[in-house]
Write a protein that binds this DNA or RNA. Structure first.
Length: 115
DNA sequence: AAGTTGACTATTT
DNA sequence: AAAATAGCCAACT
């Protein structure tokens, strides 16, 4: 596994997503140091999801919606249930309001906190 | 080894 | 607006 450490970076990023928040593949990719490689995020999660401590459930697509997959653990509704259990609210369209639930990494230094 | 696929995203038709 | 096309790159066949 040549880029195993890159995957580690992806996993690490996903792990840092707090409960009740979500992140898009592109966002995770960028934070993981893989700009433009959103597909790899999904692929990475695909292989690590089962038996993993990684909150893959908090990773959604750019629309704030859950991406389906024929290989899911069982059904696509499972992920939605997990997110709802964390306090994430879905719209009638089955989408998440990214304007509210998008995870914002604490990259701001503790010297100029304003919140 | 070469070709296809994919838990994506953005652009163009 | 929905569907098709293009760009992306690692994994799979």
């Amino acid at each position: 596994m040549p880029d195993e450490r890159l995957y580690e970076r992806i996993y690490a990023t996903v792990r840092q997503i707090p409960a009740g928040k979500v992140a898009t593949y592109g966002q995770v990719a960028h934070l993981a140091g893989l700009p433009g490689r959103a597909r790899q995020i999904g692929y990475a999660l695909f292989r690590v999801a089962p038996g993993s401590e990684i909150p893959w459930q908090r990773v959604v697509n750019a629309r704030g919606e859950i991406s389906e997959s024929p290989h899911r653990l069982g059904n696509d509704d499972y992920q939605r249930t997990l997110l709802v259990a964390e306090g994430v609210i879905f719209n009638q369209q089955g989408q998440i309001d990214l304007a509210v639930y998008r995870w914002q990494p604490a990259s701001a230094p503790p010297s100029a906190e304003s919140e």
